[in-house]
């Protein structure tokens, strides 16, 4: 009994953690190549979930059509946001960039609310609801699909960064903008590309999360803030760090929630990631895998 409970918590943690990892990867890509801190990451996730839902319910498209449409839409949105909002602020103080992404988050969130309302919307069932037995623990198929999807996606991203021309150019930009420019890489285009990737990756996270939960509402946006402890833990400029951090925060959150909530009466899950964040900031601000270049005084 106790053991199955533990396993259940671990599995929940890993599933949620894999989505954290996905969204955190988008966050890290933006920060690594453009230096911006995107606090609208959670809203990108919401946009993905809502656009997919809209395409499936209002246009009655099958998932196979709605999903690519969602990705195309968010890709465009990412590029547009970089071009219109972020580019004019190149070279502005960090505070301005943080604030503009907060403004962006508010704009996207209120835009979605205006359009879709604030009630929870049922998300179409994408995966069969019958659970699969994983040893002694029943696991819903959505979980398995979601973890598989995240794994495939992260592998694809890894390959993209390692072997494709655009991926290499992106990494060159991240490592040194001046040198990248002199090698004929359009740094501006790379900025747009990183926002595009971040938006798409988060949108996929949003669709998966919608499918797992069976319904979407504005609380999806909280994922964007949960990503902050993840990236601080993993290191702000490390993609592997984002993945490890995501899984770790997901598991820790579920374990502490599962075991401490009954003792403290709920709410532990929400605060534990931030306690981890503070601890990491005090002990090792560069995170587990980050470069040790922290603005220290």
């Amino acid at each position: 009994m106790d053991f199955t409970f533990l396993l259940q918590l671990l599995i929940n943690g890993l599933v949620v953690g894999s989505i954290y990892a996905l969204v955190a990867t988008g966050f890290v890509i933006i920060h690594k190549s453009t230096g911006a801190l995107n606090l609208a990451q959670g809203e990108f996730l919401m946009v993905g979930a809502y656009v997919c839902l809209y395409a499936m319910t209002t246009f009655r498209l099958p998932f196979a059509a709605a999903f690519p449409l969602t990705l195309a839409f968010t890709a465009l949105l990412g590029v547009l946001i970089e071009r219109v909002v972020l580019r004019p602020l190149l070279g502005s103080p960090v505070i301005s960039v943080i604030m503009v992404t907060l403004g962006l988050a508010g704009l996207l969130r209120s835009g979605l609310q205006f359009f879709f309302g604030t009630d929870t919307r049922a998300f179409p069932e994408l995966f069969p609801s019958a659970p699969v037995m994983l040893g002694v623990v029943p696991v819903s198929q959505g979980y398995i699909w979601s973890v598989a999807g995240v794994t495939v996606l992260l592998t694809a991203l890894g390959l993209f960064f390692r072997y494709s021309r655009a991926g290499l150019a992106l990494r060159a930009t991240a490592s040194n903008q001046q040198t990248a420019l002199s090698m004929g890489i359009s740094v501006k285009r790379m900025f747009a590309l990183s926002w595009c990737i971040a938006a798409v990756v988060s949108a996929i996270g949003g669709v998966l999360l919608g499918a797992i939960r069976g319904g979407i509402d504005m609380s999806l946006g909280h994922m964007g803030l949960k990503v902050l402890p993840v990236v601080i833990l993993g290191g702000l400029d490390s993609v592997p760090g984002a993945i490890v951090g995501g899984l770790f925060i997901g598991v820790v959150e579920n374990l502490t929630g599962g075991y401490l909530d009954p003792l403290l009466g709920g709410g532990v899950k929400e605060v534990v990631p931030y306690i981890v964040l503070v601890l990491i900031l005090m002990v090792r601000p560069s995170g587990l895998f980050g470069r040790k270049k922290v603005d220290r005084v």
Binding site: L37, V94, I95, I98, I232, L281, P285, D295, R296, V297
Partner: peptide, 8 residues
């Protein structure tokens, strides 16, 4: 901590 770390 400065900038974005302080924000967090």
């Amino acid at each position: 901590l400065k900038g974005l770390y302080l924000a967090m």
